[in-house]
Amino acid sequence: MTWDVILRVALVAVAFLTLPLIVGQTEHKVMAHMQARLGPMYAGAFHGWAQLIADGVKFAQKEDVTPRAADGPVFRLAPAVALLPYLLVLLVIPLGPGDLVGQQLDVGLFFVLAVVGVGVIAVLMAAWASANKYSLLGGLRAAAQLLGYELPFVLSAASVAMAAGTLSLPGIVAAWQPWWLLWQLPATIVFFVSGLAEIRRPPFDMPIADSELVFGYLTEYTGLRFAFFLLAEYVGIVVISALTAALFLGGWHGPWAESVGWLWMLLKTGAVAFVVIWLRVSWPRLREDQLQRLCWLVLVPLALAQLVLTAGVRVALG
């Protein structure tokens, strides 16, 4: 029993440490090729596969700077706070059929939604403690963004929970049927878009917005603490992709799901992560007010309509 728990936690930790690196490397290469470049080619001999490891070594060597006017403890704590929620979320994302999940949780979906939202506190901490007006502006943008996307995010997740009749993530995946792809399509889009806003990825990276705010709330960070924030961003991609895959794309469902279900889940997660990267390369950044308009005038009504539709179909099916 104890060994079982330790093994699960260790596996989640391994996933936590490797998947973001894979996503990061994919981003390097995919982004490069989408821009008709090659991307990293040297670190690790074969097509630069060790580039992120080299980056990590570089970050570890850099000086750890805390600005004199900054609020030291808060400034130093923020990167850890940014990382922790995503690590916790990875615990409950189901990988395969049966018991292939870090921790069975009856209200897993709720847990995920609650914990992911905590990440923005780290952003606010970093933004305010940096004693830099660009950082503060970035943090305020992040908070304003939260007010916009949190509602459609939760509503669209509620739709699929209502369809499956359970809040447990493995339960939702188990109840999933292929025709849900069509039925839950609006919710899928709403969830994915607001998830992108949640992890502050382009086109919703206004809190960072390097062309306007230097680097937003990350401006004053250096070395390992900056690397932590970057890692949090990539874990965020993994988490949002895995959630989208598990909730809306059927998780482990696919041919021979009993034996290679985990592979399906990883493939779907990877596909969604690819889309996240693709959007970053292709689309320009929105303005903050455009995001608010999108969230309140498009996503929220869409999510509410989806809720009505889901409820109707559920009632009709008995």
Partner: peptide, 14 residues
Amino acid sequence: LAVTLKTLVTPSTT
């Protein structure tokens, strides 16, 4: 999206 996808599958000449 189509433009970036096309560039992705076009071999890079670097």
